[in-house]
Amino acid sequence: MDKQTTHFGYEEVPVEEKAGRVEQVFDSVARRYDIMNDLMSMGVHRFWKRVVMERSGVRRGHTVLDLAGGTGDLTAKFVERVGPTGRVVLADINASMLQVGRDRLMDRGIGAQVEIVQADAQALPFPDNTFDCITIAFGLRNVTDKDAALASMTRVLKPGGRLLILEFSKPVNAVFEKVYDQYSFHVLPRIGKWVANDADSYRYLAESIRMHPDQPTLKAMMENAGLERVEYTNMTGGVVALHRGIKF
């Protein structure tokens, strides 16, 4: 793969095409995204996100960026944590996902407390040293230039601020990995076809997980971006990993 191309799942595509291809995927799945998350993970994604909240260190008065926050489930939890003196920004590059997030936050009665921003993780439109905490859950693998995104996130963190990346990763057990592969490439697209009438998008999502950096590689990328005390926690046998780093 040269500098002019990148991965879209297992396919090699021109760099300038990836963002548009990813946008098409999430335009297609936006309205069924939360239902699919429950079905795909058998509800376990809710546990993974609870761990994010526990490790975030967010408290009243903090400023939080929920990046690639889509339908806003983490955003809603952060609104409760920061209280009326805090600030929560829901950002996503995809307008369809943001619309779903906006609608659901309004339904919960907290839409007015959230700033909603359409933004590219590779070039965040915020001043330096803005946020006490940034989370990106299941979004980094879809970013074309992950190093640029990590640098951008580090830039807008306050000194002492935390970046938490929740992402599908590499299972630590070889037998479990084979079962997981069978599920991802055979069962998942069928669920996508049944629920969202879109097998191809969920096949891409499975492929994008396999192309994402493994746990030690992502840890090194975060350190290269300037974060310190970087650590990761495997969950569900490494199917998902939570990486956390601090800006000093």
Rank of each mutant, 00 (worst) to 15 (best):
Gly72Leu: 09
Arg102Gly: 03
Leu98Gln: 08
Ile93Glu: 10
Thr85Leu: 00
Met36Leu: 15
Leu67Ile: 05
Asp34Met: 11
Thr75Arg: 02
Met42Asp: 12
Gly72Gln: 08
Gly43Glu: 14
Ala91Leu: 03
Leu90Ser: 02
Val88Lys: 01
Tyr33Ser: 13
Trp48His: 08
Leu39Asp: 13
Met53Glu: 08
Arg59Gln: 04
Thr75Ala: 10
Phe78Asn: 01
Arg81Asn: 00
Gly57His: 03
Met97Pro: 05
Val64Lys: 00
Met42Arg: 13
Met36His: 13
Glu54Gly: 13
Ala91Ser: 12
Trp48Glu: 09
Gly61Glu: 04
Gly86Cys: 08
Ser96Ala: 15
Ile35Arg: 15
Arg81Pro: 01
Gly69Trp: 02
Val58Cys: 06
Asp92Leu: 04
Val88Gly: 04
Val52Phe: 02
Ile35Glu: 12
Gly101Gln: 05
Glu80Trp: 01
Gly57Phe: 06
Ile35Asp: 05
Met40Cys: 11
Gly86Val: 03
Gly101Asp: 12
Ile35Gln: 12
Arg32Ser: 11
Met42Ser: 15
Asp103Trp: 03
Ala68Gly: 11
Leu90Gln: 02
Lys77Trp: 00
Met53Trp: 01
Lys77Phe: 04
Arg31Phe: 04
Thr71Pro: 09
Val51Ser: 05
Asp38Pro: 12
Ser56Tyr: 05
Arg104His: 12
Gly83Ser: 01
Asp34Pro: 01
Gly69Asn: 03
Leu67Thr: 06
Gln99Ser: 14
Gly57Pro: 00
